[in-house]
């Protein structure tokens, strides 16, 4: 199980990010990417435990005995959730600043970028990023808190 996780988790993470980025033109998007990322993290939990991210990946000391709510990882998830909400609302209100209605989206084409030659930048990507973060944050908060029970 751990060996499988070691191999699959990075792949899943990369796939989820690519799904998120290509979402505007190909199948994918913030929600799907977010759920897939969450699935990757849940896989780590099933294989290891809640402390693994801290001790195994980041090499930090884990304080034993703290409740799940003060756990640093869980706090980070909650912050992710908050950041996502802020981005969603912020991208919505940004349109108001230039006189468009709430949540209006726009896009620009950038040309001459190395490698890609042409890149389309849509403001919807910011909104989608918010969606992604909210989904990741909330699902992982829920899962980690529930699994700690």
């Amino acid at each position: 199980m751990r060996t499988t996780a070691r191999v699959t988790v990075p792949i899943v993470l990369v796939v989820s990010i690519s799904l998120f980025l290509q979402g505007h033109n190909l199948p994918g998007g913030g929600f799907i990417g977010g759920v897939l990322t969450a699935a990757a993290f849940v896989l780590i939990y099933v294989a290891h435990d809640l402390d693994y991210l801290e001790s195994g990946v980041l090499g930090r000391e884990v304080e034993a005995g703290t409740s799940v709510f003060e756990h640093r990882t869980v706090t980070a998830y909650r912050r992710t959730l908050l950041a996502g909400l802020v981005i969603v609302l912020g991208s919505g209100f940004a349109g108001l600043l230039v006189g468009d209605p709430f949540l209006t989206q726009g896009y620009v084409h950038l040309e001459g970028v190395p490698i890609y030659h042409e890149v389309e930048l849509a403001s919807a990507l910011a909104f989608d990023l918010g969606v992604y973060l909210v989904v990741v944050g909330s699902l992982l908060t829920i899962v980690s808190v529930v699994s700690a029970e």
Partner: peptide
């Protein structure tokens, strides 16, 4: 309008 070819996502 939305600058994306994935209608669902747009």
């Amino acid at each position: 309008g939305g600058g994306g070819s994935n209608v669902v996502n747009v």
